[in-house]
Design a protein around this nucleic acid. Structure first.
Lengths: 148, 148
DNA sequence: TTTAATAGTTAAATAGTTGAACTATATCGA
DNA sequence: TCGATATAGTTCAACTATTTAACTATTAAA
């Protein structure tokens, strides 16, 4: 039983590494002139509608200065815009521009086709339970962070 | 049924992104003076015992010049060494030094404890079937690459 | 034996990241 | 109300990771 846990951990480390790298490479092929991080940033911002640097730093698990650099590049590309809060002038809201929304919509279509071609090779039950476990793991990681 | 697939894809994209970022941040905490990529590189090389730049480039899904840069840094840190093949003088074999082996062994212990604390929150059956699906996905991605 | 292919490196450019120091603004307690 | 403290975000220097194109060296193939 104990050595089994050890083996499961090894398998998990190897497979998660491999899938991450290969999936990132596939996603990248669909992103003309944009990077994977830029895609995920726009994707997250689009879901939240509006958000702040501090929030992004927490979600991406990086320093705020990394977010400043990334958002600067996205502002230059006219994909997002900054808007200062008039009540609390420390905070700056980030949101997608029309160009950013257009690009994201087109890209999401491509990425969905890509993921669909992979996901449909599994039964619906298998994928459903896979994602459920994955989401449990995400929750555990989220809570772990909150306790620190 | 069809809109369900769409939703599954969305859930997969969100959860895989989140887990990747949070897990990478946790792994990083255990790696003093080394980066996540450097850890995974040493880990892979250790499993293969000896390998080449070309092989690493394929596994990491990056250009060979990226591997040259990464291995240069690891040679500087005395974690790996280069050895030219005497039969085919184009190829250079990469392998861990004693220092590299020592560091990796210590680090693997830490990472295993980390993953164990997460993995043991699931039943053995749940983890087993999760990893099995994950491995199927890895195989699909591997084959997809080979056909290209 | 010229020509192809293969293995790896170099160099310039760009993206992502950290950590420390910084500006500006808001909040809180005496 | 004022002075200390906290919060939001930026700047800068240093570094890692990556790509693309041009390159060297070596091997294989016509």
């Amino acid at each position: 039983m104990h050595s089994n846990v050890h083996e499961l951990i090894e398998r998990y480390l190897s497979v998660s590494f491999l899938v991450n790298k290969k999936a990132a490479a596939l996603v990248k092929c669909e992103l003309d002139e944009m990077t994977n991080d830029q895609y995920y940033l726009l994707r997250y911002m689009s879901k939240r509608n509006v958000c702040t640097s501090t929030e992004l730093a927490a979600v991406f698990a990086v320093n705020k200065s990394a977010i400043t650099a990334m958002t600067n590049r996205l502002v230059e590309k006219e994909m997002i815009q900054r808007l200062r809060d008039e009540n609390d002038r420390r905070v700056i809201y980030l949101s997608l521009t029309e160009k950013g929304k257009r690009w994201l919509a087109e890209t999401e279509t491509k990425i969905h086709h890509l993921v669909e071609s992979l996901i449909t090779q599994f039964s619906e039950e298998e994928i459903e339970s896979f994602i459920q476990t994955y989401e449990k793991l995400a929750n555990i990681l989220q809570k772990l962070e909150e306790t620190k």
